[in-house]
Design a protein around this nucleic acid. Structure first.
Lengths: 142, 142
DNA sequence: ATACGGAATTAGAACTATTCTAAATAAAAT
DNA sequence: ATTTTATTTAGAATAGTTCTAATTCCGTAT
């Protein structure tokens, strides 16, 4: 299995480039880790995960990379009640469910619902982003 | 106009009591300030405002009072992207619009919309709270 | 290939909103 | 009045994030 085309790793740099992000190895590693385990990790958690592949990376760099990815719409930052920011590689419009146990789940949001939310606002409001957060208890399926 | 019944100040202690909050002078002052200027102040801003009426109050007490009011459903805490928590005395279910200039506005949310949001979740999810935040540019009417 | 210049990374210090701590005070219950 | 319990207070501590200044990296021009 020496020189097989690994389906994921090759186009990563290209994806970053297409979004205006200079593909450094740290950015690729951070982005890859978000794509691989989609459980809304915090910066600290990302830091812990990427250290295996990039043992010399610093926490500041993880923050930098995450910021760049968020700025360039490759990743979403998710905030809930002053808890540490969580990161999410799901780009489809969706809401988040925050479990009382600490889990964060993506909730699909059809465009119809989004449009209805937007219609709550007077027409002279310019809406850039709509954020929907649920909080409660989700059934734990282990 | 010496001994007129001031419509607001009398029942305040009663309102607190009815919500299970022991009415201390600090709590009354903090709650009153939120009722009077409904512009979603931060704890620091509340601190600055109540100092006129209660010059010896401490910031820690302001935090304590706000927490107690939030715990007992007299006030809502509003968070947006790790900005300092803002406080809101509007108890009706509503969303928030976060202006790029920093203003926070209440947006009425009919129960129909709330129900539709809840319907996005599988029925075995127990929803405690739904939070909707808009972000964008609001027309500034000065 | 090599040197230059701007961008990215790094370690650690700094910052900020909030919470904690322990002592003092106030209020309620006896 | 006295005891108990809750609240307030000032300041220290904490945690997540950002800043700083030095180093390293990478693309481009030579």
């Amino acid at each position: 299995m020496a020189e097989s085309d690994t389906i994921d790793s090759k186009p990563l740099a290209k994806v970053l480039n297409e979004h205006g992000v200079r593909p450094t190895s740290q950015r690729e590693t951070v982005y890859e880790s978000l794509l691989q385990k989609r459980d809304h990790p915090t910066a600290d958690e990302v830091f812990a995960r990427v250290r295996e592949k990039a043992p010399t990376i610093s926490l500041a760099t993880v923050y930098n990379c995450l910021d760049v990815l968020v700025q360039n719409k490759l990743v979403r930052a998710v905030n809930f009640e002053r808890a540490p920011t969580q990161y999410c590689a799901n780009l489809a419009p969706h809401a988040h469910f925050h479990d009382e146990a600490g889990r964060t789940l993506d909730i699909e949001m059809p465009t119809g619902v989004i449009d209805q939310l937007r219609d709550l606002l007077p027409s002279d409001f310019d809406v850039k982003h709509i954020e929907v957060n649920f909080h409660g208890r989700a059934p734990h399926n282990d």
